[in-house]
Design a protein around this nucleic acid. Structure first.
Length: 422
DNA sequence: TCTGGGGTCCTAGGACCC
DNA sequence: TCTGGGGTCCTAGGACCC
């Protein structure tokens, strides 16, 4: 049975999530900003039409935002995460073979649905997701994941096909591929696009026709696989059970610059607590910990950035242990005389927490630590992140990430339920 | 004044071993 | 004093994704 993939992708996901709970914003330009209200991370179609680019710093487009009365939101990841889960649960009803590829997209394996009219099936998916979650999605189908991505892109950009494109049923595939720029192909980033353009390859159609040896030399095995996928030979399978995580990170830019070790220690302590929570949620323990810090690269003045990796004596998921190591690390690389913009903590060499190796010299009471951590997690889960925290995390507000324009947690907080009035 | 955060995979080169 | 080839593992850096 030849493979058939569908890619279902939410349109302008974060912006659409905001709109679901504020329907009068339908037709209005919306943007959603990153942490600290720094950059644009999502745009409604109306905002895109104003020429607002992805990743643009907010302060650069402030006059434009004001002139066109663009609605601006800080990012609200709890809301988006919850909405994402609802979309995925809806998709599962249509096809149990589903790979959640990112927060706003999923691949479905429709090999067994080949006799069906896939365009019609896609429309049904689209209608149902819209009805059950309020979110608009686009559907692209083809015989490989890479082509399904392209089909989805076509579905989004062609107004008269109602958000669904089945490339298998398109008689003029070559024409369609000739209209897709090579940098818009999944897996082609800025650098590869530049090299390909230099060799006269500017469209997906041209990329499909390149010489195997040439692409292997230029872009390695990844490039060759990509070209095969464009030719309709499936090389990327559906990955239903996500591979266990290899690393977990918490890093943030500060609300304001930091220039004391005490503040830096507080920040690192907070970030370590966050990443330790993630670690326990994944039921993993870490054997490696990396701390890093950096000054503001966009600013004049002395620059410094550094990172240090520590090997932990035993695999651990205890916030206490991890903070101790992280502080040791940050003290080693901290230098006076700089104004720091950002710091981060990464956990590596992750192992399942159930099969942690016991250490001969590990005399601490593991059970006690486990009970402490689960108490900590349930309190913070119930009362909000950071309700209970370590003294080393301090109480200073300077470090707080800023979200001046955040929408309520409509779906995950009883106090923030939207109010319907007659 | 103001520029995000969190991941994965591949490759080349060096160290080391037999 | 001369001299080979192959394998594995690790790391850093580059490229990509959302």
């Amino acid at each position: 049975m030849p493979p058939v993939f569908a890619l279902v992708d939410c349109n302008n996901f974060y912006a659409s999530c905001e709109r679901v709970f504020t329907p009068r914003l339908e037709g209005q330009p919306i943007v959603v900003l990153s942490n600290n209200d720094g950059c644009v991370v999502a745009r409604s179609n109306e905002a895109k039409a104003l020429g607002i680019g992805m990743g643009v710093p907010e302060f650069q487009i402030r006059p434009l935002l004001r002139a066109h009365r663009v609605r601006v939101f800080s990012s609200n990841y709890r809301l988006y995460g919850d909405m994402s889960q609802r979309v995925m649960e809806t998709l599962e009803q249509f096809c149990p073979d589903l790979e959640v590829y990112s927060i706003d997209e999923a691949f479905l394996s429709l090999g067994g649905f080949a006799q069906r009219n896939l365009t019609e099936y896609g429309r049904q998916i689209r209608r149902t997701v819209k009805q059950w979650t309020g979110l608009p999605v686009s559907v692209g189908t083809a015989e490989t994941k890479t082509l399904a991505k392209i089909a989805n892109r076509i579905a989004k950009r062609t107004p008269d096909i109602e958000g669904v494109c089945d490339l298998l049923a398109c008689p003029d595939r070559d024409t369609l591929l000739s209209r897709v720029a090579v940098e818009d192909v999944w897996g082609i980033g800025r650098n590869h696009a530049r090299v390909l353009n230099q060799h006269g390859i500017t469209t997906a159609l041209q990329l499909r026709g390149v010489d195997d040896q040439w692409i292997r030399r230029r872009m390695g095995i990844v490039g060759l696989r990509l070209v095969m996928e464009l030719r309709g030979i499936s090389c990327l399978d559906l990955e239903q059970c996500p591979a266990p995580k290899q690393s977990l990170t918490c890093s943030r830019a500060f609300g304001t610059l930091i220039s004391t070790l005490t503040e830096m220690e507080e920040a690192v302590s907070v970030y370590t607590s966050r990443v330790a929570e993630k670690l326990r949620r994944e039921q993993l323990a870490a054997m490696g910990l990396t701390v890093c810090l950096t000054t503001n690269e966009f600013k004049e003045g002395p620059q410094y950035s550094n990172a240090l990796t520590l090997n932990l004596p035993i695999a651990t998921d205890s916030t206490t242990d991890l903070i101790r190591s992280a502080l040791q690390g940050i003290r080693a690389i901290y230098r006076d005389g700089y104004r720091y913009k950002k710091a981060g903590v990464m956990l590596t060499d992750l192992v399942p927490s159930s099969q942690r190796q016991a250490d001969l010299f590990d005399y601490r009471d593991r059970e006690k630590s486990k009970r402490l951590m689960s108490a900590l997690d349930s309190i913070n889960d119930r009362w909000g992140a950071g309700s209970l925290q370590y003294a080393s995390s301090g109480i200073s507000n300077a470090l707080k990430t800023q979200f001046h324009r955040r929408s309520p947690a409509y779906t995950t907080d009883w106090d923030a339920l939207p109010i319907v009035s007659a």
